[in-house]
Write a protein that binds this DNA or RNA. Sequence first.
DNA 1: CGCCCTTTTGAAGAAAATCAAGGGCAGTGG
DNA 2: CCACTGCCCTTGATTTTCTTCAAAAGGGCG
Lengths: 235, 235
Amino acid sequence: MALSPFVTKLSALVALTGDEKQALLALPFTQRKIDRCRDIISKGERPNYLYILLSGWAGRYSLRPDGSRRVTGFLLPGEFCGIHAVCNAPMDHAITALTDCTMARVELAVFESASSRSQAIVRGVWAAKLAEEATLRVWLTNSDQALRTLAHFICELDARLHPHDLANERRFSFPLTQDQIGDVLAITPVHTNRMLRTLREAGLVIIGQRIIHLPDVAALRAAASFDPGYLYASR
Amino acid sequence: MALSPFVTKLSALVALTGDEKQALLALPFTQRKIDRCRDIISKGERPNYLYILLSGWAGRYSLRPDGSRRVTGFLLPGEFCGIHAVCNAPMDHAITALTDCTMARVELAVFESASSRSQAIVRGVWAAKLAEEATLRVWLTNSDQALRTLAHFICELDARLHPHDLANERRFSFPLTQDQIGDVLAITPVHTNRMLRTLREAGLVIIGQRIIHLPDVAALRAAASFDPGYLYASR
DNA sequence: CGCCCTTTTGAAGAAAATCAAGGGCAGTGG
DNA sequence: CCACTGCCCTTGATTTTCTTCAAAAGGGCG
């Protein structure tokens, strides 16, 4: 069931019937692997597909006049992009593989015909879009202090990766380099390193060997003033 | 023709037929004035209307944990908000009157029935939404240096207010205080003042008496690395 | 005039960038 | 098996950018 992460993701946003889930799982798609650091969609492109991330982490980014990169959003397994294309607009930004990725591509026309038969699917896509927009606003609002921004970002990743996990301690794969984190938070890698050290010394976040350990999620969320409401993942 | 700014705005994004324009102008609406600094839509609300700004400037904003405000987007005459509500989601942010405003409200059901009869109107709304999203990404990407961010912001306002003006010199009403600009750029009002002085001394931007004067738009755009493509206002 | 709001400027301090240098570790090739 | 290389992480010292605190000046309006 290769598309099942997509179904899981949509189910977190809206209630889907068994038939709707089956329809999604039955969508025809092509699959391909993308190496880390390669673009999945380039700026200016007009994609003809709905792209669904099956494994790995990907990111939306833009370039500054000086050539530096700013990551403006994340794609985690089950999440999608390319929807842009419904109005045939060129991409205003690019999407890149932050780790090695596996992507599924569904032809837009095929997906549209499936969604035309289900109001819930349409609402799910809308909800995902709204959450993305809300996330952009949260990132804008939170960009005042690097330490809190970093803590908030880690909370967001945790909440998006484990929407139903109620435990207060977490340990999960965290494949980003400090350079990449810097591109996300708009700070230098040196400063990223120092802020991570501060969080480590506070006993809130330990990263090592591409694994992150959060000994006390509640304390981390408090430090970050994190409220997951903007992710619209209440279901 | 009270809704004509709305028609003008949509026309800038998609081609509308005479019939479509007439249908929009014939939409029933209620009108009201909102004083500066008062909220138009609050956070958490589920608006039942499409709100169209007829005069004045409004802004989307969120509050930080410390109570300070971050403006995450602008509404200029003819632009709208409340579309959020199509999926009955609560507002993740609030909308406030940055100056005294006049707003029109159209019942969502009424607007939806009008748009169901015109694919162009639907595409116009989508295009506006995409431009808004692209703008959020540009703001995120550009938040590295206060001077360039300020110059870029002024370029954006100019481009949105005068999409068809090809002259290189501009003079127009600019009702924001330096406090408000600070809330937009996420810098202190003191620093806003200093950056404005720098732009004034460079002969790029002169603000006084709620009027802004741009003696050399091309030079300002160059200094800001401003490219209006993300506004999707090519028409 | 006197009040409030806004703008302006100065001086000191905090936050983050920049510059620079090592160190660990995995993979590669002799 | 070990040296080499490339990538990533870590830390220190210095400089730039922006904030904070404080004070004063301008402008519109009762």
